[in-house]
Design a protein around this nucleic acid. Structure first.
Lengths: 102, 102
DNA sequence: TCTATTGTTTGATCATAATCAAACAATAGG
DNA sequence: CCTATTGTTTGATTATGATCAAACAATAGA
């Protein structure tokens, strides 16, 4: 398996970040991670296959939104809050606030 | 010509807004409008044909990011700052701050 | 070593979208 | 009217991406 690629803080690209956030499934993943800290891929009860989910995690990872830590057979994902907030101040907070319908 | 469609404030959809902002050309359009208030379509010296530009304006308009006012032969575009800020507080500001490289 | 679990990758399909040239529409000014 | 200007729409092309099933890889546990 190819090792997981995480772009550096300086490489974060706004269009890529916005694009990653523009998919409802990925937005939901980000919301969960914002609340729960660290989650394995399989713990999201989303209505897509594991292949599709894996694809979405890859998009989020390569855009620099999440960090994936390997432990045994699991991949634990977490939001790169610090990096995002440094590079794009207020963006994540605004997106998270807005993504709660109501 | 079909009349220009602008979604109501309540119809604004976060994924659609983020998607509209995820294209560099459209992001540049939004940045210009944020600075200059109101601009006709032809006044952006962007490296795309007028057909492509028209397409991007349509995407921005239908996502609710811009408002297009027809005056004579021109279309004057402006950012829907108020609506965006009401619906997604802090989002536009964060995007505009982030989109200035440096 | 065998098996179950977890997730990735590949290959295919289908949909969406970015782009352009060309045709079209609407208007302003002669 | 005629013409130039401004922008939209259409049709075509090309690229990207969301999705799934199936094959694969890695690990933990019996």
């Amino acid at each position: 398996m190819r090792s997981l690629h995480h772009p550096g803080r300086e490489q974060l690209d706004l269009p890529a970040v916005l694009y990653a956030l523009s998919d409802p499934t990925r937005l939901e993943i980000v919301r969960r991670l914002a609340g729960d800290g660290e989650l394995a891929c399989g713990t999201f009860g989303l209505p897509v296959t594991k292949a599709t989910l894996s694809h979405h995690f890859k998009v989020l990872r390569e855009a620099g939104l999440i960090q994936t830590r390997v432990e045994g057979v699991h991949r634990y994902n977490s939001l790169r809050k610090q990096d995002l907030d440094t590079r794009f101040p207020g963006l994540l907070k605004a997106v998270l606030k807005a993504s709660v319908p109501g």
